[in-house]
Design a protein around this nucleic acid. Structure first.
Lengths: 348, 348
DNA sequence: CCGAGCGATGTTAGCGTTCACTCATTTCGG
DNA sequence: CCGAAATGAGTGAACGCTAACATCGCTCGG
């Protein structure tokens, strides 16, 4: 049963069934031009030997591609993790295999380094272009194998429409909505605790969170306070936000994601500021825990899993070279008002 | 530059360098028996053509294995996610590629289904055996390719020592420690909000969280209340824990993980019970957010990332058939006391 | 001065598939 | 019934690489 015996190959099956290896291949791949009797014989042999086609050999021989590699930033971030889940689900349902390769945010990966992560040239690849290494990887693959890559990131509808290899949501628009909401509540201005992407050397495109936030403030003629840069971790965020929270003139903070918002909530608590009485906090992403903090976070829901699924679908069509199907779509980001936001307290 | 031209193969390099393909192979694989001059020629040709060895072909041809497949439960759980991160890091440093395949907790995967997830027979595999599908997958692979698999799960030191394919931590011991801590604080008994694994059809081994908890209560001669079963999600936990929290006789709850603890915290807040005044709550895993809830969670730290790394190391040695190196080790689970635990309030 | 020995390279045979053909047999329209 | 079109199955090459063995030309000991 469990002997370390070599696995059966297509030839073993062929021999046992008394047919050619090609016929076995036909049966395995469901070719219609196989006589029922032959098919049964082969199927029987397959069952007896416990034969399973070797995917490596299949790909090598130029069969259909059936693997994706995902290049991503740290998977401990909710966004990439959820998108990865979406990709995996979609891939699994088609029996594709999913490889992951984590880009170290600290490293400046060379082009060659990025390419070296792919198991072979032309490997279908999805890049989470949320941060610096991701953007870089996107560029490298765009130059190398544009037809076998798709990038996920924050882009405006126009950007998405212009680049057939892009998938994502307009974070800027969502941030704008959240900011407008806080302004409408009566806050004089809104401060921003920013994820690295929005303030990094990329500056952030129009679809970045910080951009949408700043845009609305400018349009409303409000003061645009300098965004407070934070790292990705809660601990970093906590350190970064303490001074902001200590400032009594700050009445509303839009956070780059829910982890940063949690840190802000904690910092506010320790600083003795009541939320949402003295300070309104809005997060981003609707991370599962966000509904269960005390008070529960007002945040922006993002359906990353659907975006991941969409990225996979798009990639598949691009690799196939098939008819460009309609772009996959998913729910728009949506503000979810919970308990951390409210009107500012009447100023003394 | 970016033409959809076919990628260079070892033959192309050989032709350009004026040597045989085997010599190219030797250079690529760092064989010592290549003349310096030849090596340079080949290297030059490689650079010029942008040649990269095809990993698929390499594995097919019987070269060294350099890929792992991770079979895991939902990656949105902190444990599996962190362990996966550890595996990926360790694998990356050796230039192995990592594939993931998520086992659906709802599905009862057939043996064939599980096997079918591996890209080829004998694929090195790490199984996160935290839940039912994981345990099942472990069993299937143990029967099929014991030398190319390693399972991660909660096991006692003895179990680990007895099974060379097992890696993990003694959750039972850690749960026992946490329970003892609560008892020492003066609580009459400790209730338990359990993750599915501990109460499922597996009953849970000695190293399971619920088991360690129950053991300590029995040893201390305390009442052992029925554990409250919860699903994996915070929402499910919230529903499950409400009745427990509403019961004023309940003064201490040990939660199966930090997500469940957060739900408990929230439920306690809504039920008007103060934490830790009326109710002590202890979580499990030291999930990053746990230090930033209000009040901050008392929890048990688990170094899943190290366990993941250890699993990879062990797998590598098993696949190599190499000298059985000393078992990799990692920090023991450790109770981290923060703000959600304290002595019970004097009973009225 | 001859052959053993060794270093540097080439040659051949797979690894497990698929693809592009070829070759019998049937089937069927006229 | 005849020849053309299906139908069912086989053959050989190719995919990109490694393993194992073969070959060549030197050096060097006896």
């Amino acid at each position: 049963m469990a002997q370390p015996k070599k696995a059966a190959s297509i030839w073993d099956v062929a021999r046992l069934a008394g047919v050619s290896h090609q016929t076995v291949s036909r049966v395995v791949n469901g070719s219609p031009r196989v006589a029922a009797a032959t098919r049964d014989k082969v199927l029987e042999a397959i069952a007896e030997l416990g034969y399973r086609p070797n995917r490596l050999a299949r790909s090598l021989a130029g069969g259909a591609v059936e693997s994706v590699t995902v290049l991503t930033a740290d998977t401990s971030l909710y966004g990439p993790e959820a998108a990865l889940r979406g990709i995996e689900k979609a891939a699994r349902s088609l029996e594709w295999s999913v490889s992951i390769s984590v880009l170290d945010p600290a490293d400046t990966h060379s082009d060659a380094d990025i390419i070296a992560r792919l198991p072979r040239a032309g490997e279908p690849t999805i890049i989470m272009a949320h941060d610096e290494p991701g953007m870089r990887a996107k560029q490298v693959l765009l130059d190398t194998q544009p037809q076998a890559m798709v990038a996920i990131g924050p882009y405006t509808a126009e950007e998405l429409a212009a680049s057939p290899w892009l998938v994502g949501m307009d974070d800027g628009k969502a941030a704008a909505e959240a900011t407008r909401y806080l302004l409408d509540l009566g806050h004089a201005t809104v401060h921003h605790l920013a994820i690295p992407t929005s303030t990094g050397t990329f500056g952030g495109g129009k679809a970045h969170r910080a951009d949408g936030w700043a845009r609305v403030l400018r349009e409303a003629g409000r003061e645009v306070p300098a965004p407070v840069p934070s790292g990705w971790t809660i601990t970093e965020a906590f350190k970064a936000v303490r001074p902001l929270v200590a400032d009594p003139s700050v009445t509303a903070i839009l956070c780059g994601n829910d982890h940063l918002a949690l840190a802000t909530l904690r910092a506010a608590h320790l600083a003795g500021r009541s939320v949402p009485g003295d300070l309104s906090i809005v997060g981003f992403d609707n991370t599962p825990f966000s509904a269960f903090t005390t008070p529960a976070l007002t945040t922006v829901n993002q359906d990353f899993e659907s975006v991941g699924r969409g990225a996979f679908e798009l990639l598949r069509h691009r690799v196939d070279g098939a008819i460009p199907r309609p772009r996959p779509s998913w729910p728009e980001p949506e503000l979810i008002v919970r308990e951390t936001s409210g009107p500012p307290s009447p100023r003394s």
